[in-house]
Design a protein around this nucleic acid. Structure first.
Lengths: 328, 328
DNA sequence: GATAAGTGTGCAAACGTTTGCGCGAGGTGA
DNA sequence: TCACCTCGCGCAAACGTTTGCACACTTATC
């Protein structure tokens, strides 16, 4: 069927080991033999079997990546960053999504193990670090936005939300609503805590009625916002779990004839590409997505090469745009 | 190091073959032995080696997917569709991007080969079907939006663009510009041809000055549009290669103080999620992204199971929204 | 009571590659 | 001339799994 190293060996009249060495430019192979075998391999359409290499103990050339789902631009940008440095290190990506489903996440990790990957990066995980630490036993792993893990790269999401609240307060807002992810992940908890902490720091109370659940997507934002506008004392500004939710919220307001920022200020989280181009442009807490991915991957390779690395916490940045009032 | 089938065999006092069979519920293994071995495997943390299985001729549980890049929501939605049916067939995805780079595409295909994948789906490829056909020799392959390939699933992009032109003409437009992808891919050629054909069918000339190059992203649309508005006779409507370009175009117009649809009508292509939620909402040619991915994957599995399949051409649908005038 | 059929398990080869070790041929230095 | 070194290559084991075949034992069939 497929041509193996032995087929080449036979045709060249040498042993398989010679072929193996000739193909990887081993110094103790004569120049003539090297040329002969390499051209022979090309002619015959030889393509090495990664499986066989793995079996004899070579490290896998691929690293695994686990993300919640493929439609969230935030994770996609992160993926770009990861892929970029993976390619620089001659590695490839095995990507899987688990879609807020613990069972699928489990399956995905099993696949990682069976493939004997040389490393994994996990983002938006549903389970806690302790579990993951045990689960990925032996395989170098880096987590994204998962603080209580020795090897993690994250931005300070809580602090980001505090900044968002501060910004609104400086604009004079006192009634500030929040639309959450609606699923109990690490990120959801931290961001909501940041929102509450921001209010507390300004001496403002936090009303549970001002916190409503979205779904992390645009549609969730659309439906959630009506729960806020129908309150007897509706907020004058809304902070959202992420940019997609914020876009949904703006749409929902638009459907009610309310305009942003005149009738309501809105803040997102992520700074997706669309945030800058939406009309109105979206004030948001920037997560350096691609950078985050690059950092995570760099850390992973450092780990794989045996270097000692430590968790990293990045400072978030508030990007002021049109959805919280006209720019000066 | 890692626990193998032999370790279990030794501990259970049986041979490796018995363990192998017991783990996969082979009928000729006694119930007692099966129980014993399976629980032993669990205790010892056994995880099978995919590499070893591959080596003895078992088909790979993973299929490869090649896409241009991770940031284009169109391909991401497609990916969701592919992953969905892959999971249903107990398979996993190995995804790689090639970013309009022929060299990287070549590298990616090499990786596919070395992994001995059981199938691949290729989207937005840079090279022609003949090459791919030869390249992926032996491995079942399905192409997305690549007509002249025996196993392809595509929507009729040309016809979609004709529909877009027709729509604008029915609204009274006679001067219609076009912003292309700017890279010579199959899709770029077909969509531009459709634009020209649409004009021709209406008896309108097509002016090369009305065709300007974007880059497939939002930024490309922003810069491209000024080349159209600065014409001595600017168009009154603009058709874009895709939705992201259209969003860029609308932003560019906005920067010039022009409003959509009052001063200019804009049409996109894809019907991304954001198209419905952008303000103004975007008239566009719908590509059923997720469906496209599902179809491609289904076809691939059919191919893998030895069924006979044929190319499929889906009818595009024009989604009328706010960017081409108020809705009735 | 012999033969046949079924049941539960082991043997060993095979998949494709890498790598430590060995070995002969030729070269170098004393 | 002898010992030693380098060069170029082959041998064979090893990685973890699957599977056809063989084997011993038990149970049914006539």
């Amino acid at each position: 069927m497929t041509v193996s190293i032995k087929d080449i060996a036979q045709k060249a009249g040498v042993s398989a080991s010679t072929v193996s060495r000739a193909l990887k430019d081993h110094p103790r192979i004569s120049e003539a033999m090297r040329q002969k075998i390499q051209s022979l391999a090309r002619e015959m359409g030889y393509v090495p079997s990664e499986a066989a290499r793995l079996l004899v103990g070579q490290p896998s050339p691929t690293i695994g990546v686990a993300i919640p789902d493929f439609t969230d631009p935030f994770y996609m940008n992160m993926l770009c960053g990861i892929e970029e440095v993976a390619i620089a290190h001659q590695h490839e990506l095995f990507v899987g999504s688990f879609n807020q489903d613990l069972h699928r996440q489990r399956k995905l990790f099993d696949a990682f193990d069976q493939k004997r990957l040389s490393g994994v990066v996990i983002a938006g995980s549903l389970v806690d670090a302790a579990f993951l630490n045990h689960q990925q036993n032996g395989v170098p792993a880096v987590l994204v936005n998962h603080y209580n893990y020795p090897f993690s790269v994250a931005i300070d999401q809580k602090r980001g939300m505090v900044k968002a609240v501060n910004h609104l307060i400086s604009l004079g807002h006192r009634h500030i609503g929040y639309v959450s992810l609606g699923v109990e992940t690490n990120s959801n908890r931290l961001r909501q805590e940041g929102y509450i902490e921001g209010l507390a720091l300004a001496g403002l109370p936090s009303d549970p009625n001002w916190i409503v659940a979205g779904d992390g997507g645009i549609a969730g934002g659309v439906t959630a916002v009506s729960k806020l506008t129908s309150l007897s004392v509706p907020p004058t500004a809304i902070i959202c779990y992420n940019d997609r939710t914020a876009i949904g919220v703006i749409n929902g307001l638009h459907q009610q004839g309310l305009s942003v920022p005149d009738d309501m200020s809105v803040i997102g989280f992520d700074d997706l590409e669309i945030a800058a181009y939406f009309l109105p442009s979206l004030t948001t807490v920037r997560q350096p997505h691609t950078h985050l991915g690059r950092q995570a991957a760099e850390k992973l390779f450092a780990l794989m090469y045996g270097a000692n690395v430590q968790a990293e916490l990045l400072e978030p940045e508030l990007i002021r745009r049109g959805s919280t009032g006209p720019l000066v």
